[in-house]
Simulated scan of single mutants.
Amino acid sequence: MFGSIERYAPAARILHWLVALLVLIVFPLGVVIDFVKEDVKLTFYLLHESFGFIVLWLMLARVAVRLIYPPPPHVPMPKLQQRVADTVHIGLYVALIVQPLSGFLATNAHGFPLSWFGLVDVWSPIGKSPDIAPILSVVHYVTGWTILILFCAHFGGVLYHHVIRRDETLGRML
C-alpha cells in the first residue's frame, strides 16, 4: 500500500491521529457550551477543559518527536505548494499549543482552577486575575477559529493530494 514512500515516525503518526481525534471532540464541546442547559454546562466545561489539557501535552510531545524524528521529505510538488503545506503545519502546531494553553490560563484567570476530569486538581500558575482573563479568553476564542480554518486547509490539501493528484502524501501519515 505504501510502496517506497518515506513515512512519518510511528510516534508522530500516533500522536497526529490522537490529536486529530481529540480536536474533533474538544472543538464541538467548546462551541456548544453556551447553548447547553445550565444543569449540564459544568460537565461540558469539565470535558472540554480536560480533553483540551490532553491536547496541550500531546502537542508538546509532537514537538519533541518532530525534533527527534524530522518529517519525511514532501512528495514531488511545486515549491509554492510545499511552502503552503509547511505554513499550514507550523500554524497548526502553534495554534494547537496556544489554544489549550490560553484556555487553561483563561480558566485559571477567571478563578476556576482545572480539575482534570474531576479527578486531579491541576496547579494554577496564575490564579484569579480578572485583568488578564478577558484577554486570554479572546486569544482562546480566536485561536479556536484559526484552528478550524487551518484544519480545513489541511484537510483540503489531503483531499487534493489523495483524490486529484493521487500521490502518496496521505500514506506518509497512515
Rank of each mutant, 00 (worst) to 15 (best):
R7N: 02
P130V: 12
F151M: 12
V36W: 08
I135N: 00
A153F: 09
L150V: 07
M77T: 08
D131W: 00
L80M: 11
V75M: 05
H74S: 13
D121M: 00
A20Q: 10
K37G: 15
Y93V: 06
L148Y: 01
K37L: 15
L159Y: 07
P73N: 06
L119P: 01
S137P: 00
P125H: 07
R166L: 02
H48A: 12
R66Y: 03
I90F: 14
G144I: 10
D131A: 15
K79C: 00
D86S: 14
G91K: 03
F51R: 09
H140G: 10
D34I: 12
D34K: 13
V75G: 05
P10L: 12
A106G: 03
L170Q: 01
G91M: 10
T169L: 04
M1T: 06
L22N: 11
S129V: 08
V36P: 12
L15H: 05
V40G: 11
L92K: 03
M59Y: 06
V65S: 13
A106V: 08
A153K: 10
Q82M: 13
M173R: 02
G144V: 11
L21I: 14
L170R: 01
F117E: 03
C152P: 00
I147F: 05
I132L: 08
Y69W: 14
I14T: 14
L96Y: 03
S50H: 08
G157D: 03
R13A: 08
I68T: 13
H161T: 02
D121E: 12
S115I: 13
L105M: 07
W145T: 09
V63G: 12
T169H: 02
V163M: 06
S129H: 11
L24C: 15
E6D: 12
A109R: 02
W116I: 05
I135V: 15
D34A: 15
S50R: 09
F155S: 03
T107Q: 11
G156R: 12
R7Y: 01
K128L: 05
V139N: 01
H110Y: 15
D131N: 09
L29G: 15
S102G: 07
G111C: 05
Q99T: 09
M59F: 07
S50P: 14
R172L: 03
T143M: 02
P73G: 10
A11E: 13
K128P: 00
F51A: 14
D167P: 03
Y93S: 04
Y8R: 06
P73R: 02
Y160D: 03
V36Y: 08
L18G: 12
L159W: 12
P78Y: 00
V122H: 05
D121L: 00
S129R: 11
E49R: 13
L56R: 10
V55P: 02
S4R: 09
L114N: 02
M77D: 12
A61M: 11
A95V: 05
I25G: 04
Y45D: 09
H161K: 02
D34L: 13
L159R: 04
H48S: 13
